[in-house]
């Protein structure tokens, strides 16, 4: 028996909007530690990892670990039927081939339930080793989204370079080139508006902007984003989900032939 009650149902709506364009089908894994997902995009270049810890749910019952295969477009369609302030409960029986999403209005005067068929999805699970990154940039998530959008009107790839002076996002294309430099500004009044750079070593990597733009669909989940880079690892773009966990995207770099 699985029963997860999430008071802030809008979080789940935002999570689905942030991953459905990158991944079509995925297994949602549920265990005593929480509700999680790990899935690669169809070209095996990017990976999305979600964790919603059990203690972030108002009620979390998971009698035994369960993996539920779902089509993310279908889940997104169902969740669009929930209002932003609805409480969402996910229910499934052990060995069931369906999952039920229940939406309750905050005043408890409207209750809707939607049953969805589960799918059998064979996915490759990747072991991601813990790593120390050479550079970690934390910046406002809206700023990062704006930069990725602006640069993609000029080029297809972005070079992200971190030095102690700041982080530089560069691109070039048929019409010309562009560089955007963000410097540390940790003295701003609101912490969420700060750009901070933890740098052990300078690092510069090239990525496909198409994926970066897809990651920025997670912007509504968090006011800040962290970008962790090492020269021999995929970049990690992380959006923290307040009090509950995270949504992380891993992207393999492009290397010069």
């Amino acid at each position: 028996m699985l029963e997860l009650r999430l008071v802030q149902g809008s979080l789940l709506k935002k999570v689905l909007e942030a991953i459905k364009d990158l991944v079509t089908d995925a297994n949602f894994d549920c265990s005593t530690s929480g509700f999680s997902l790990q899935a690669m995009d169809s070209s095996h270049v990017a990976l999305v990892a979600l964790l919603l810890r059990s203690d972030g749910f108002e009620h979390f019952r998971c009698d035994r670990s369960l993996s539920m295969g779902m089509n993310l477009n279908h889940v997104s369609k169902l969740l669009k039927c929930a209002s932003n302030d609805d409480i969402i409960t996910i229910k499934a029986d052990d060995d069931a081939d369906t999952v039920t999403f229940m939406f309750e209005s905050p005043r408890q005067d409207k209750i809707a339930d939607f049953e969805m068929k589960l799918m059998d999805i064979k996915s490759e699970h990747l072991g991601i080793p813990e790593a120390e990154y050479q550079s970690i940039v934390k910046m406002p998530s809206q700023e990062f989204a704006r930069i990725c959008k602006d640069l993609s009107s000029i080029g297809d790839t972005v070079v992200i370079s971190v030095t102690k002076e700041g982080v530089k996002f560069s691109t070039r294309g048929d019409i010309g080139s562009a560089n955007i430099v963000c410097r540390q500004n940790s003295t701003v009044d609101k912490p969420e508006e700060a750009t901070t750079i933890q740098m052990k070593e300078p690092v510069s990597l090239t990525f496909a902007l198409r994926y970066m733009n897809s990651f920025t669909k997670a912007t509504p989940l968090s006011s800040s984003v962290s970008i962790s880079m090492s020269s021999d690892l995929p970049v990690v773009v992380e959006y923290k989900i307040a009090e509950m966990g995270y949504l992380r995207y891993y992207l393999a770099p492009k290397i010069e032939d």
Binding site: V45, L47, G127, T206, A208, A252
Partner: peptide
């Protein structure tokens, strides 16, 4: 010319 690297080069497939 840039070549896109696959994730599996970095991570173990379990």
């Amino acid at each position: 010319i840039f070549i896109q690297v696959y994730l599996a080069i970095y991570f173990l497939i379990l």
